[in-house]
């Protein structure tokens, strides 16, 4: 292999590895605050069922864990219900979807439940 070809390969390799970083930096600009999801304000209540910080990390536990108990094992009367969430967070597109599309994670709730 000649030197030019080798150098081209070296540059390509480094560029490939750096590509995601360059994509983000170029697309969002440098020295500007990183984008964050903008969530619709909750209605009907000022506090969630658990502290907001805990909910950010663990809300899926409530949802999936209780799903398993309720739907698969028929245990009724748990503390939280997804309908309960919807009483405050009324618009899925302006609440759930904002974070989920930000993080590239697909929620499973709406495979069954319909939320406007």
């Amino acid at each position: 292999m000649n030197a030019k070809g080798s150098i081209a390969i070296a540059i390509t390799l480094v560029a490939l590895i750096a590509a995601p970083l360059l994509y983000t930096a170029a697309g969002n600009g440098l020295f500007t605050k990183p984008p964050a999801p903008q969530l619709a304000k909750a209605v009907n209540a000022t506090e969630c069922v658990e502290p907001a910080g805990w909910m950010r990390a663990n809300h899926m536990n409530l949802l999936t864990h209780q799903r398993d108990l309720i739907v698969r094992e028929g245990e009724r009367g748990r503390k939280y219900r997804i309908e309960g969430c919807a009483t405050c967070h009324t618009k899925r597109a302006e609440f759930c979807d904002r974070c989920h599309s930000y993080a590239g994670a697909k929620p499973e709730c709406f495979d069954c439940h319909y939320l406007p």
Partner: peptide, 17 residues
């Protein structure tokens, strides 16, 4: 953990902010 917070942290690093 808070994935949104983690992503924000990582994006902040990448965007030099």
């Amino acid at each position: 953990s808070d994935m949104v917070g983690i992503k924000q942290f990582l994006l902040g690093l990448v965007m030099a902010s």
